[in-house]
Every structure is written in structure tokens, then in C-alpha cells.
Design a protein around this nucleic acid. Structure first.
Lengths: 219, 219
DNA sequence: GCCGGTCTTCACAGGATCTGCACAACTCGG
DNA sequence: CCGAGTTGTGCAGATCCTGTGAAGACCGGC
């Protein structure tokens, strides 16, 4: 199951390198460069973890942390500019689960993200009926038989399986799998949905007219 | 085979009582009372497990943990003075596998050491089908016959064998074996994969298009 | 310096995969 | 039943990725 990480960081260089690294690790990454965007994205994309810079335009990281946590408990990894004990303490107080002081190594950050997420993901093991997805091995079985999927197909399926039965708009799928944000009139998503249906059975993915797609699994 | 435990703890009383107890359990115990000694001993004695106090003279436990792990992955049981969530998290981030807060009972500690070692000894010798890897002797056998591998080939194989069946991205393999971080368009990994396939059989390594490679072993 | 072994890079070929398009089929509210 | 809007489908060109062989760089031993 692919996990979503929201990275909130105004420094473009840091933001992209962090995002790249986390994507390489197999996470779906959303980026926000200021406080308000961060809060909005946190609501829209429901990330499994937030990486949060304390110094931000708009309003600061602590405020973001408070607001995000207010909606829904989510683990937060906080980035502080300096080794500031006070900042760190306040951060932990408002709900950060871990913190890192700049400059930090990308590897270190990735390690902590993994640890935090491992802690969380232990609990969640959704039942997908006769569909089995192994994200580590990148294998998919349906009704006991292994099915070969192309990379994009796999990512798309994982994205859908992430929230079984929930209807995901094309826009969101495009962002999560393709990293775009403009849902231009392309039939790209449809094409891959079609491929998935052909390989895994037409009943697996439900179309919701005017909205998007949802994974159909027995409750 | 007797398993070796390195105990790193500056308090003499605690150190000796832990050592005594573990020796009574049948483990070979090495003692270190400060960071530098710990790192040195870890290199020399190649313990199967490290019991590590966070508070240490020289440099602290986290640093020891990092340095020890940098050389060779080894399970670490961390001892923290207080029930500090942050300390614990950081500990886990740098590679600790379990932690215990003082004051702890010697019996409890011995129990966890047993659990960790059992977990590891199973993990250290995962079932690789007809493939056998001896990391200490740097020898590899397949189907009973010894196969000569070059250093790089061996490291790459070990890296893959570390997590059988898991798909490891090229990026990750490059980092682990070569220490680089830039996945430039080089075919280096491919070349060595090819060599491994030639020597060990084409079926051993699965390539996952667009992602990386995985060791293919029967479940 | 020479030599054998090993590592890295390169260019290319052959696949595998992605994407956008045109058009058919469908859905839904009137 | 109709029409606008939405989705399904087949396909072909473009693109991306991996396998491969060979050439040169590197390295330690002699």
C-alpha cells in the first residue's frame, strides 16, 4: 500500500530533493510551500505523514501543525532551522512526533519517515477480498493467481486500494500516480483503468459517473 | 553456535550484572564502558547484538548506534534513562530495534535479548532456496556448487538477499553497494546483475520494469 | 612497467510501456 | 426519447527501460 507524505517546505531546493528521495522510496509525495496551502492539501489528500518546516510564509509551522492535527491525528516530522531546544519543545507539544534540525541529511530524514510510518501502518491492513497486493514485491494476485501489471497500472491500483470503496477523482489519481495537477482532456487514466479491468476483472473497479473511480471490494 | 552480545554501559554495577546474567543464559558477552571502545569492539568482535546505553562518555549512544550500523547491520537494544519519547524515536531512527527504559529488570532485558536474537538468527539465515551465502567467508553456493563472485557482485547479491523477494530500486542498490546517491543514467547496476545471472542462473534475479531488481526465491 | 582481473561507461537494439486521439457507447436529467 | 456530457475502446507513434557486448579505466601484484 502506497503511503502519502505531505512535505511542507518553502525552500524549493530542499523541498524537491526531499520529495525526490521520498518518491524514490516509494512514497506518494505532495508538496506545499506555505502554511495555507499545507492546511488545504492536508485536508484534500489525507496524508499518512507530514514533514513540516517550522519557518514558513503565511503562518508558521507550529500553526500548521495545530490546524492539521485539529482535523485528524496524523504523525508530524518537524524540521527546525537551528538546534533550538525551545522550538523543538513547542513542536513536540503541538503534536509533532519527531524533529530534525537543519542541515539534515536526506537519508536521515528518509529513515525517520520510514520509522514513523512503519509504526502507523502496522495497524492498517485493509481487506481487499480475493485481491492481494504486495507493495514490497510489487506483485498482485487475484483469486490466487499472479497477475502481471505494468508500473503505472500497479501504482494506480495501489492508489485505489489505499482507500477501498472510496471514490477517487481523476484529478487526485493523476496527482498521486502521475504527479500532474492539470486534468486536461486526456484519456490517460481511463486507459490504465481499462488495462486493470482487463487483467483483474471488470468488476474490480467501479466507475462513478462525473466523479472518478473506486475499488470495488466486498465489505 | 554461541551468539555474541556487546554490552555498552558506563555504570559498572549495571554492566556487570547484565553481563553475568547474559553469560548465564549462554551468550558470549563483551563489555564496553564508553563510545569509542564500543565502536572498536563492535568492529573486532562482530557481535550478533548490541545492548546500548544512550548516555555514555566519549560520544553518546545514538552516535555509537550510527557508527556501528554504518559498518554492518546489527540489531541494537537501546537503554534510555527516562521514558523519553523523543529519545526513543531518534533511537529507532538510527537503527535501534527495541528499547528499554531504566530502571529495568535484568530478567526483562534478558528476555528481550533472547527475542531479538531469535528474530535475527532466523532473519540472518533466511531461506534462499538452493542459494547459500556465507557473509563471513564471502562464499556463495548454488545447488551445492561453489560459485566465485567478484567483490562488487558479492556485495550486490548480499544486498538483494538481505530482503528476499523485495524489489529494490536501482537508487537504493547504488547507495548500498556503491555509496552514491545520484542515479545517473549509468548501466552499472545492470552490468553486475547480468554477471550474477550468468554465474548463478538467470532465474535468480527478477527485474521489475521501471523500478529495480528483486531476489527470486521460493516462498 | 606489465599483466590479469575487475569495474565502469557507452552505444545500440529490442522490448515494454505510455499517451493521446478519434470515435463508439454510455449515462443522466429533462 | 433526446442531447450534452462523460466514459470505454482500439490503436499507433513516441517514449522510456533493460539487456548486451565491447572498450577503456582502474588497481594491485609482480
Amino acid at each position: 500500500m502506497q503511503q502519502r507524505v505531505l512535505v511542507v517546505e518553502d525552500d524549493l531546493t530542499i523541498a524537491t530533493s526531499v520529495a525526490d528521495r521520498l518518491r524514490a522510496e516509494g512514497f506518494a509525495v505532495e508538496l506545499a510551500h506555505d502554511g495555507p496551502t499545507a492546511v488545504r492539501l492536508a485536508e484534500q489528500t489525507l496524508p499518512d505523514l507530514v514533514v513540516l518546516d517550522v519557518m514558513l510564509p503565511g503562518f508558521d509551522g507550529l500553526e500548521v501543525c495545530r490546524r492539521v492535527q485539529a482535523k485528524r491525528p496524523v504523525p508530524v516530522l518537524m524540521l527546525t532551522a537551528r538546534d533550538d531546544e525551545a522550538d523543538m519543545l513547542v513542536g513536540l507539544a503541538v503534536g509533532a512526533d519527531d524533529y530534525l534540525t537543519k542541515p539534515f541529511s536526506i537519508r536521515e530524514l528518509a529513515a525517520r519517515v520510514r520509522v514513523l510510518l512503519r509504526r502507523v501502518s502496522r495497524a492498517a491492513a485493509p481487506d481487499l477480498g480475493d485481491l492481494r497486493i504486495d507493495a514490497t514485491e510489487r506483485r498482485v494476485h487475484r483469486a490466487g493467481a499472479e497477475v502481471h501489471l505494468t508500473p503505472t497500472e500497479f501504482d494506480l491500483l495501489v492508489c485505489l486500494a489505499d482507500r477501498p470503496r472510496a471514490v477517487l477523482p481523476r484529478e487526485q489519481l493523476l496527482r498521486a500516480v502521475w504527479g500532474w495537477s492539470d486534468a486536461n482532456g486526456s484519456r490517460t487514466v481511463d486507459s490504465h483503468v481499462k488495462a486493470l479491468r482487463r487483467k483483474l476483472g471488470a468488476d474490480l473497479i467501479r466507475t462513478v459517473h462525473g466523479v472518478g473511480y473506486a475499488l470495488e471490494v466486498p465489505r
